Lab assay of single mutants.
Amino acid sequence: CHSECLGNCSQPDDPTKCVACRNFYLDGRCVETCPPPYYHFQDWRCVNFSFCQDLHHKCKNSRRQGCHQYVIHNNKCIPECPSGYTMNSSNLLCTPCLGPCPKVCHLLEGEKTIDSVTSAQELRGCTVINGSLIINIRGGNNLAAELEANLGLIEEISGYLKIRRSYALVSLSFFRKLRLIRGETLEIGNYSFYALDNQNLRQLWDWSKHNLTITQGKLFFHYNPKLCLSEIHKMEEVSGTKGRQERNDIALKTNGDQASCENELLKFSYIRTSFDKILLRWEPYWPPDFRDLLGFMLFYKEAPYQNVTEFDGQDACGSNSWTVVDIDPPLRSNDPKSQNHPGWLMRGLKPWTQYAIFVKTLVTFSDERRTYGAKSDIIYVQTDATNPSVPLDPISVSNSSSQIILKWKPPSDPNGNITHYLVFWERQAEDSELFELDYCLKGLKLPSRTWSPPFESEDSQKHNQSEYEDSAGECCSCPKTDSQILKELEESSFRKTFEDYLHNVVFVPRKT
């Protein structure tokens, strides 16, 4: 048989008469490798580009789960590009990614509803959504962080984005990388972005840091009482949809009607710091009717980097990364020049730590249904340095008659930039024990000054392991946590139920 035959053949030295091919099969003959313009397919066939392209389009058009959109890589027609490569849609070739590779997620039936953290986790790592997304989240724990972890990498949506009755959302900033909504599939009414009845939605994105392009379709905003109209108009300008909307697409009466839409800028007039305090004062603000001013709200939190936005980490279910302080308005003076500047002394802060701070007014709604208010920009203030805590785990070892090696770990709280350490030492008198000992005694162990690591005695271990207080009263049991108490109650309830079950099964009433 021919060298490319495997198993047997019907005619000697003829690659077209093989029972099976050793390498690849091409047009009725066995070959060692697939010549151009053919590609290896499933490690035994040679196919042309049209064959591989037909497989790709067949799966793409069917949208069946589990099928493969075949691509070409290293002269092979394979189910998908290997790690580190992405497909070129024009020629199906796998090309190296520039940075992290995109991950295209194809949605069944063309859309997916995100109504819980669990459903959001199914899209973790996706960068391109081939379909439409509907966000409908009523509640949950730590929602802002969970949504950002699972949806934060999405850069492109081919269909539309719909935010509907998501009472738990305060902001859409968890879509931190969303840059493009194509609108290839539109919501009824030709809408590519749809926001309806979101009672706590206050911000779409921080438009000073976020760009969003909507290729096709219109915007729809109705019944978002805490979303200011200025935020919607800003989205029109940034996304390129200005002029597409009709009169009733953006409701003037049901958007922002319960919001404090600040239209003035508060400026800080005085800032002073110490290692654990920050004193702030800002310019006074009074609405047209000074009785509408209820006070100020001061927001602050630790910020290692200057990239904080107002609604980071917030949701309507209680999660809030900001510390909020309510401040009463100052006494009002008739003389504008003698107006008191409101302020606040922030206490209990960490030394040498940068804080993000902003302040906003708290006002009631005027009778004319106009909203007044003022808010400052987010500023960054760093507390002063102070003395560091003591170095940890000092170790001293003498390696000769004239040297001592000293080692330690950095302090747990540096409280500033540590530039150097101060080492103090003092000579001590020799131990009298060394002169009084009889060095001729056998088995004498000389006193040693070398360091030995501390260890816990058996008594201390027994005390720590004991669940009861000892007789001397030195140790006591740790208080039980809520989960331990709940577990004990469940076990007790189970024992009672099981005992009742045994009584009912074992003891049967005697027939009379």
Score class of each variant (00 low, 15 high):
M346W: 01
S333R: 09
T353C: 02
L294K: 12
F299R: 14
A120G: 12
Y372N: 11
L298D: 00
I250K: 03
K409M: 04
L345K: 06
W322P: 02
I357Q: 00
K375A: 06
E122A: 15
V359F: 03
W344S: 08
H341T: 14
L219M: 12
S260I: 12
L362Q: 03
S401G: 13
I163S: 02
S158H: 06
W352C: 15
E368Y: 11
S319K: 06
R165M: 08
E155I: 14
E148K: 09
K162P: 00
W408S: 00
S173Q: 05
S173I: 07
Q216V: 08
Q354R: 09
A145M: 11
D292A: 04
T215L: 06
T113I: 06
K226L: 06
L265A: 03
D326I: 07
N150A: 08
R247H: 13
I327N: 01
T215F: 09
T127C: 05
E187Y: 03
I278L: 08
R244N: 04
E146S: 04
R176I: 06
W207C: 03
K267N: 10
I379C: 13
G189S: 06
L294N: 11
L147F: 11
T273K: 14
Q258F: 03
I405L: 15
K301R: 12
K103S: 11
Y160R: 07
D393C: 15
G183L: 01
T118N: 15
Y167L: 09
T361K: 02
A195T: 05
L298W: 01
P284M: 13
W344Y: 03
E283T: 13
K103L: 09
C261R: 03
F268P: 01
L204P: 02
V363A: 12
A356K: 02
T215R: 13
L345V: 11
E283G: 15
E237H: 10
L204Q: 01
P351G: 10
A168V: 04
N198P: 00
D384V: 14
W344N: 11
S208I: 04
R370T: 12
T215M: 08
L349F: 01
N334F: 03
Q354C: 01
N255P: 05
R124P: 01
S376W: 00
I137N: 03
